[in-house]
Design a protein around this nucleic acid. Structure first.
Lengths: 384, 384
DNA sequence: AATCAATAGTTGACGAAGGAAATTATTTAG
DNA sequence: CTAAATAATTTCCTTCGTCAACTATTGATT
């Protein structure tokens, strides 16, 4: 078992995170990248190699003019430690085991009969045991568990202040999960966890500022500004879903009117599609099918939703001017119906050079939320 | 003349900025505040005292139980150095001399016949000379000039990339202003400069995240997140004025529709008030007078503008969850007409605990923009 | 082959910065 | 006058990172 990587020198943390997120890099490249002397990098890398976190790759490519000693890049030893991530929803636990590079190595899920905290925690314990004792022998190399929960989460204390979907209030999730699993637990809001995952291992790598927009039952946004996750001084941030974009739009459950979420969440789409198609029993999948089959009224519902999402994204972009934006979410399963409208809505309202901000739109792969949870525990190891 | 405060140890900068922004503080209080040992504070403070930036106040108040050596608070010697700040608008230069605590000591302004860069720079040189050689003998203790310009400004290079009001493109303002004035020049976007001023010396002091919204000919927003000014990766950030809040609202000069600015800028208000009052020659002041006199149609224009501003502020608050928000601007000269609507619009659309964010609304004192410019040069001295 | 230039990485001396704890300073309470 | 409490300083020490010299490894040139 590898020892705790606590209380590391700044340079050690910097080298670790940079190699982790920006792939194999030679010591000289790291020194340039981090503004350190090459000697400092040598010294910082040594303990990480000795602890088994980094390894030196064989020199391979020759770059530049060709002369000179070839660089030996430092790379993460991904299998030196594993991390469990679990996304907790109202009716399901989705769990994964990831390696240090956040690659999913195993996954499992459990349906929940009821979302009360006691029940969820017992199920969580069993799920984690299943994951760690299943094929792969992860148990001996796993110390950490990350949990992702929607709602207001204090990630420093591991307290879930309020989670509407779970109907939890002030649940000390970290403490209780540590007792049940015996692992070191990190708790984070689900959207923020996903944002960290994307910032460290996805399309946000290297971005100084970055926004992740999730579209689904809710519409959320995780923000990275100045290289750091934005938490909001009252625990709330990234509530793109409750930006009002249409004074005369539909009423939203938040009490306002014309919120993005009231127009573009899956629920809102179903509600509008039922009216448009005059079928009160219509499901989301039915709506998608109708729109793809050319139903003009239902198609307009998706178009309007896409425009609304584009407006919300434009608002984020106009305010913080991020390097990059990623739009994702289970609601984008039908993303062919949304994408052009999201882009058009964004382009129309993005101000000046903000319109140049790269926007990637893609469906959210299954397990991604749980992977986000695991990423948070990786981050807790590296940048503790 | 005091030497350059370049390349200081982190603790020295921390002590300096903390004393500067959070008033006289004893060494022990500073140590607690900054997470340093008291010894470190003693060492960090010494050079600052020797250079004349700080002074030790006589122990005054006894706090707590009463026993113990009284603390001798460290305070800024405000008159040890002066800073010039100039706000450049299309038709006017507004200049001030501030002390190290950003108190205005002298001010002057000049009307511009034309906004071309060459002309502006000659006038700038004369304005600065007037300020420094006027009463007060500031010249000998002044090394720095801050310039505030609306538009896209690269503050690291001092280049004005694009300023629509001035019709400037790629003007290397820092270089040229240094040549004309002989001072070390810092250039910043006007709203960002004002934000720094408010963050360091105004209501944003101590805030980890903070938003300043300015209402006037344009509607802008400066953001501080994680203690640092948000610049936007393409130079654009805080464009609250171009968040669209009404799909069917009036067309905006930016090409979109229903932008906050198209509803609530002074121009937009005048335009709408002329229609409402059926007086095509109406001025802003006339509109204010009519609204105050009870004209319902004109009053509704102000109400709608206030609501729109409130919506924009709610969008900012929902996204970044700031500690505090300040609304200011020359457009708020008639702020009695706006204030309740701004607050109501904000409260309606602020999500969850975001609604608890303190909101202060107040008219922008004359010279405040220029003071912001001076503040930027103070910041450049302290945190270079 | 020998040498040189170029680049990568290591090493050890050094200096700057900050912590720990003993010491000094200054006050009030008794 | 002494003890307790708090503030500030000082000294010693550790840590971290730079600097510059040095080793290592390659391709190119002669």
């Amino acid at each position: 078992m590898l020892p705790e990587a606590d209380a590391l020198a700044p340079a050690v943390t910097a080298v670790f995170t940079t190699v982790l997120t920006e792939g194999p890099l030679s010591r000289v490249a790291l020194a340039r990248r981090l503004g350190l002397s090459s000697g400092a990098v040598t010294k910082a890398a040594r303990p990480l190699i000795e602890l088994g976190y980094l390894e030196e790759l064989a020199a391979t490519e020759r770059t530049g003019p060709g002369a000179g000693r070839p660089a030996s890049p430092l790379a993460i030893r991904a299998d030196c430690e594993y991390f469990v991530g679990v996304k907790i929803t109202g009716d399901e636990l989705i769990g994964v085991v990831c390696d240090l590079r956040a690659q999913v190595r195993a996954s499992a899920h459990r349906r929940l009969s009821a979302p009360d905290a006691g029940h969820v925690l017992t199920e969580l314990g069993e799920l984690v045991d299943d994951l760690l004792d299943g094929p792969g022998d992860f148990r001996s190399r796993t110390r950490r568990l990350g949990l992702a929960v929607s709602g207001d989460v204090d990630h420093t204390t591991g307290l879930v202040r309020y989670s509407p979907f779970l109907r939890w209030r002030d649940v000390s999730l970290r403490e209780r999960a540590e007792k049940v699993t015996g692992l070191t637990v990190t708790v984070e809001n689900d959207v923020k966890a996903l944002t960290v995952a994307e910032h460290w291992f996805g399309e946000g790598v290297g971005a100084e500022s970055f926004a992740l927009v999730t579209v689904g039952a809710g519409i959320g946004c995780g923000l990275v500004v100045g290289g750091r996750l934005v938490s909001g001084s009252r625990g709330v941030a990234g509530e793109i879903g409750h930006i009002a974009i249409d004074l005369n739009g539909p009423a939203c459950h938040c009490g306002s009117r014309g919120c993005v979420e009231a127009i573009a969440s899956t629920d809102a789409i179903v509600r509008q599609a039922r009216v448009a198609a005059r079928q009160p029993e219509l499901t989301f999948d039915d709506a998608v099918a109708l729109a793809r089959a050319g139903d003009i009224a239902v198609g307009a519902v998706f178009a309007r939703a896409g425009d609304a999402i584009g407006s919300g994204i434009a608002a984020v972009a106009n305010l913080v001017g991020p390097d990059r934006i990623v739009v994702s979410g289970e609601g984008l399963a039908a993303y062919d119906l949304f994408e052009p409208h999201i882009r058009a809505g964004f382009q129309l309202q993005a101000f000046g050079t903000v319109a140049d901000c790269p926007l990637s739109i893609r469906a959210l792969p299954f397990e991604e939320w749980a992977r986000g949870a695991a990423t948070v525990s990786i981050k807790a190891l590296v940048a503790s």
